[in-house]
């Protein structure tokens, strides 16, 4: 439960003096990237979105891709608040990084339609959830959002009657260029690969970050680039402090198309708007970090 891993592979840490295998892997990655770009699933358009924690960003190959789809699942139903906190912290970071209007004629839009129009800065975040989940886990609370760094005026919330409407809303919002990030809270069932693929395409088209927020872990195949399981993290050394402190997550990267996996305990620093490895936690053992079929991360 509380194992903390340090994913360290040659690929995750680019090394100029690396030998033949690294070059080969890089070449394969480039080929794969080209193939994915052709399908529209890669979403490499737009800069990478770094989490601000070097070790995690390294595992992600620099950060989450700009116009890509990701899945964040709560470790169990009771920990859905941790998962939504993690997703909202990402949103806070996304808004603050996009604070300045994007430069005119950025390469992404030039490729999309060739028109030299100004680029919507995508500083808005849309959150959508089923009615039932809003009743169960509570609706987003403005003062609390503001506290973790999301300006509530940048947020649009959509209460959807059913999961299908959540997916539809997400797709519409991802395609809208004024929205930089879309979070859809759902139960993990009945969402097939076609639906996630549609979302991935919409994310690529709108250059927005799409997050499917599952209330429990799910292992169905999906078009998402990464899949995270987020749980609440408690301090091991209970005597050290009596403050509740800032949001703390046990983050497991359980699927990653671009690189290794890992488990980290991170804290959200709402002032600097970045994730930090929990300082007083010590690495206990290395978690599996190779491709998914080698791992036994539960």
């Amino acid at each position: 439960m509380n194992m903390i891993g340090w994913p360290m592979t040659a690929a995750a840490r680019p090394n100029p003096s690396a030998g033949e295998p690294t070059a080969r892997i890089d070449q394969l990655r480039r080929q794969l990237g080209a193939l994915e770009a052709a399908t529209g699933l890669a979403g490499d358009c737009g800069a990478l979105f770094a989490l601000g924690t070097p070790v995690i960003d390294a595992a992600l190959g620099g950060g989450l891709g700009g116009g890509t789809l990701h899945e964040i699942a709560a470790a169990r139903e009771a920990e859905v608040l941790a998962a939504s906190g993690f997703a909202l912290a990402l949103a806070a970071r996304r808004i603050s990084l996009r604070g300045a209007p994007a430069p005119i004629g950025n390469s992404c839009n030039a490729r999309n339609d060739g028109r030299p129009v100004s680029v919507p800065s995508g500083r808005n975040v849309l959150w959508t959830a089923e009615d039932l989940l809003l009743a169960e886990n509570g609706a987003l609370y403005g003062p609390g959002l503001d506290e973790i760094g999301i300006a509530p005026e940048r947020l649009i919330t959509v209460a959807a009657p059913c999961a299908r409407d959540v997916l539809w809303t997400m797709e519409e919002a991802l395609r809208c260029r004024a929205v930089g990030m879309v979070i859809g809270e759902m139960r993990p069932r009945g969402i097939d690969q076609v639906a996630t693929r549609r979302l991935a395409l919409a994310a690529a088209a709108g250059n927005a970050l799409g997050i499917i927020l599952y209330t429990a872990p799910d292992d169905a195949p999906s078009a998402a680039v990464t899949r995270w399981t987020i749980g609440a993290a408690s301090f091991l050394d209970a005597e050290q402090s009596h403050d509740v402190g800032s949001p703390r997550f046990l983050a497991r990267l359980v699927r990653n198309r671009r690189g290794p996996l890992g488990t980290w305990i991170v804290e959200w620093n709402s002032v600097e708007q970045r994730f930090e490895l929990a300082t007083h936690s010590e690495p206990v053992a290395g978690a599996a970090f190779d491709r998914p079929h080698h791992t036994a991360v539960a």
């Binding site: 209007p101 129009v117 919507p120 995508g122 808005n124 519409e172 809208c176 004024a178």
Partner: peptide, 15 residues
């Protein structure tokens, strides 16, 4: 075609 204005229009359309 003026930055944030465009943003607002796109957003209103979505809403």
């Amino acid at each position: 075609g003026l930055g944030t204005r465009e943003d607002q229009i796109e957003l209103d359309r979505l809403i």
